[in-house]
Structures are given as C-alpha cells and as structure tokens.
Amino acid sequence: MTGREPDGDGLRLLVEPATTTRWVRVLYAVCVLLVVAGEGLRFFSHAFDHVHYGFEAWPGFYGAFGFVVFVFIVYCGRWLRGVVSRPESYYRVDEPERSK
C-alpha cells in the first residue's frame, strides 16, 4: 500500500497519514457490519417480507449496487473527459470577436 506512489499531490491525505488509513479501515469494517446487519434483519425481523422486488432481498444487494455503480460512474467520467474536455479558454477566445 505504501509502496504505491500517488500520481499527483492532490489525493495524498487519504493515502499517506496513518490516521487516514485507520479511518479507511473503520469504513471497510462498517461496510461489513452493514452486510451482517442486513442478514440479521432477514433472520430476526420481517423486514424482507414486503420488499418490492425480489432482488432487494439478496444479501448485500444495496452495497454491491452502490459499489459497482460508483466505479462505473467514475470510469464513464474518465472516458467522457477524453471526449468533451477542452482547454479552459475554449469559449473565451472567439466569443468577443463574433459579437462585433
């Protein structure tokens, strides 16, 4: 983990300091706990009896959905940047000329 050099100084806080690592671990642990809690609901309550869709009752459905979607969005964003990203002055250069 520490062997990887972050590519840019913008995102180092989450990577470098030890406290951050601890927070990240807490996050992962909470995620696991949530899945467990979901399964707990299945056995100790009737919460899953009246879900709208069957797949809502799959173990960790919401978590998996959130994770996959997030990754998908970010990768789509990266692809989109290649398509629609232009220099910051893109509109600035020509517009005043046209108005004259």
């Binding site: 983990m1 990887r4 972050p6 590519d7 840019g8 913008g10 995102l11 989450l14 990577v15 990240v24 996050l27 992962y28 909470v30 995620c31 949530l34 919401y62 978590g63 998996a64 959905f65 959130g66 994770f67 979607v69 997030f70 990754v71 970010v74 990768y75 964003g77 990266r78 940047r81 990203s85 232009r86 220099p87 910051e88 002055s89 893109y90 509109y91």
Partner: peptide, 23 residues
C-alpha cells in the same frame, strides 16, 4: 458507504480522475 468505499479504493489504486482545468 459501499459507494464511499469504492471512492476510497479508486483513489488508492490511482484510478480516480484528477481534477484538471478544463472547459
């Protein structure tokens, strides 16, 4: 929280796109 975890994971593997000045 899983989505947040995905964010953390993406940042750590360096896949999260860096901010760039752009239009």
């Amino acid at each position: 929280l899983f989505a947040t975890a995905a964010f953390v994971w993406l940042v750590r593997i360096g896949a999260y796109p860096h901010e760039k000045r752009a239009t």
